[in-house]
C-alpha cells in the first residue's frame, strides 16, 4: 500500500511526488471516479482528469494517455500569488488550500499553468491534495490505489529506494510545461 518508509519523529520531511506511466494507462478514468468518491468532489468538477492526445493522420498515428492533476509544484505560483496565505505548502511539500482562509478570489486559478483548480461550491479554491488525509495514515492517494493498470505511483522523491525514485531512474520521463518554471512534481513516463 505505501510507497515510502514512514519517517520517525525529527527526521527530514519527505518530498512527495507522483509518477504516471503513459505506456500502461488505458484512460479508463478509474482514478477520476475514485477521487470523486474519496474526496466527495462536487458534481461538475474534478480534481484529476484524463487527457488523450492523438498525433498523425490515419493510419499513421500515435497516442498518449495521461492522468493529470495538480503538479504540487516546488515553486508554486498559486502559493505565491495567494493574497490571504490560504494556499500553502503542507507536509511533504503537498500544496494545500486552507478552506477557512480562502476568499475564493481565483488569483490562484489564474496563476496555475496546469488549470488544476476550481472554486468549490462552498466558496474556496479546491484541487488535488494528493489525498493528504490518506497519506497521513500511510495510504496511497485514492487514484493510485484504485488504478487497475498501476500507472500511478506516489511517494518520496528524495528517498532513492521509493518506487517513484526507482521509476524515474529507470525510465525516460517528462513533466508538463517545464517552461513555466514551477518545478512540478508530477512526472510522466513515456
Amino acid at each position: 500500500m505505501t510507497t515510502t518508509t514512514p519517517k520517525a519523529q525529527g527526521e527530514r520531511e519527505p518530498r512527495y511526488g507522483m509518477v504516471m506511466d503513459t505506456r500502461k494507462c488505458v484512460g479508463c478514468n478509474a482514478c477520476v471516479y475514485a477521487c470523486m468518491n474519496e474526496n466527495a468532489v462536487p458534481e461538475g468538477f474534478g480534481r484529476d482528469w484524463i487527457v488523450s492526445e492523438t498525433r498523425g493522420r490515419f493510419p499513421t498515428l500515435q497516442m498518449e494517455i495521461r492522468s493529470e492533476r495538480c503538479n504540487h509544484c516546488e515553486d508554486a505560483p498559486c502559493v505565491s500569488v495567494c493574497p490571504t496565505g490560504a494556499s500553502h505548502y503542507g507536509p511533504g511539500g503537498i500544496v494545500l488550500v486552507e478552506h477557512d482562509r480562502c476568499t475564493g478570489c481565483k488569483a490562484c486559478m489564474a496563476a496555475c499553468p496546469y488549470d488544476a483548480r476550481f472554486i468549490h461550491p462552498d466558496g474556496y479554491a479546491d484541487k488535488c491534495t494528493f489525498c493528504h488525509h490518506r497519506v497521513e495514515k500511510g495510504l496511497d492517494p485514492a487514484c493510485a490505489t484504485v488504478c487497475p493498470t498501476e500507472s500511478l505511483a506516489f511517494g518520496d522523491l528524495d528517498d532513492p529506494t521509493s518506487k517513484v525514485s526507482r521509476l524515474l531512474v529507470a525510465h525516460e520521463h517528462k513533466v508538463l510545461l517545464p517552461e513555466a518554471g514551477t518545478l512540478p512534481k508530477l512526472f510522466f513516463l513515456t
Binding site: 493528504h132 488525509h133 497521513e136 500511510g138
Partner: peptide, 19 residues
C-alpha cells in the same frame, strides 16, 4: 492497510482536508 504510524510530522493547517 492503514495501520502504519503517522509520519511524524503534521500541520495544524492541514485540518479540513479530510473529506
Amino acid at each position: 492497510g492503514g495501520a502504519l504510524a503517522s509520519r511524524g510530522f503534521s500541520s495544524s493547517r492541514a485540518h479540513g482536508q479530510d473529506p
